[in-house]
Amino acid sequence: MKKFIAAAIAATGLAITPAAAQDESPFVEFRVLTPEFALKAAEAALQFCRDAGYQVGVTVVDRAGNPQVFIRDRFAGPHVYETAYRKAWTAVSFGISTGELAEATRPGEPTQAIRHLETALPLGGGLEIEAGDGSTVGGIGVSGAPSPDLDADCARKGIEAIEFDIAF
């Protein structure tokens, strides 16, 4: 069969490019954060919020949106479990910060229907975690600070804590 395919390609004068050859594999390879680095990011985000006087919950998900770590400060509200997860999930699912998605899905925008998806939460505080090559390796969501922008600041500090480790 392989000889037939190779002969057919040769007969048509087509060459297999590296991208085409890559597409023939039945497997996809990607990287995700280890639980240790997911925890390091979550702890750094929590500590930054705590130092600023905010009681929050922090979730780190893998690139597929599966939770890896959740931590909650002792006085954070019960809602932070769900909202931190949904923010992290939304960031990796849509490939955009949840603050940017909130703007893009305002009422009247063509993408406003995204707000009706069950898990999506277009509310600031969710960010993608990218490796040095730009590939998404996870997402982080923070909930409980006085505003979505402050949640996002805490999430950024979590990413900064592992930035050097995932740069290479």
Rank of each mutant, 00 (worst) to 15 (best):
K87N: 07
E82Y: 08
V61Y: 00
R86L: 04
I71Q: 05
Y85D: 12
P67T: 11
P78W: 02
A84W: 04
V60L: 10
H79T: 10
R74A: 14
H79N: 12
K87V: 08
Q68H: 04
A76L: 07
R72K: 15
A76N: 04
E82A: 13
G77N: 05
A76I: 09
Y81E: 15
R86K: 15
Y81F: 14
A64G: 15
R72Q: 15
N66P: 00
R63G: 02
N66C: 06
N66T: 12
G65W: 00
V80N: 05
R63V: 00
R86I: 13
I71K: 13
Y85F: 15
V69N: 05
D73W: 03
Y85L: 14
A84V: 11
F70S: 06
V80R: 05
R72W: 09
P78L: 14
P78T: 13
A64P: 00
D73A: 15
K87P: 08
N66I: 10
D73Y: 05
R63Q: 03
R72I: 07
V58K: 01
V80M: 06
V60S: 07
H79K: 07
A64F: 03
R86V: 08
V69K: 04
R74Y: 07
Y85Q: 13
R86S: 06
V60D: 01
P78A: 14
Q68Y: 03
P78I: 14
F70M: 10
F75G: 06
A76V: 08
P78G: 12
V69I: 15
K87S: 00
G77C: 04
R74L: 11
A64I: 01
Y81L: 14
K87A: 06
T59Y: 00
H79I: 07
D62C: 01
A76Y: 06
Y81D: 13
T59N: 05
G65L: 03
V58H: 01
P78D: 14
V69H: 04
N66E: 14
N66A: 13
H79E: 13
F70E: 05
T83R: 05
V80C: 13
G65T: 07
P67E: 14
D62T: 02
P67I: 03
F75N: 12
Q68V: 09
Y81S: 15
I71Y: 05
F75Q: 11
V80Q: 02
V69S: 02
R72A: 08
V69G: 06
R74H: 06
E82C: 01
P67N: 05
F75I: 02
D73F: 03
K87W: 07
A76R: 04
A84F: 06
D73C: 07
V69T: 12
R63T: 00
V69P: 06
Q68N: 09
A76T: 07
V58D: 01
A84T: 12
T83Q: 12
D62V: 03
F70Y: 14
F75S: 09
R72T: 08
Y85W: 12
E82L: 11
I71S: 08
R74C: 05
T59C: 11
Y81Q: 12
F70C: 01
A84I: 09
F70G: 04
A76G: 07
Q68G: 10
V69F: 04
Y85H: 10
I71L: 15
V58Q: 01
G77W: 01
V61K: 02
Y81A: 15
R74Q: 11
R72S: 11
R63F: 00
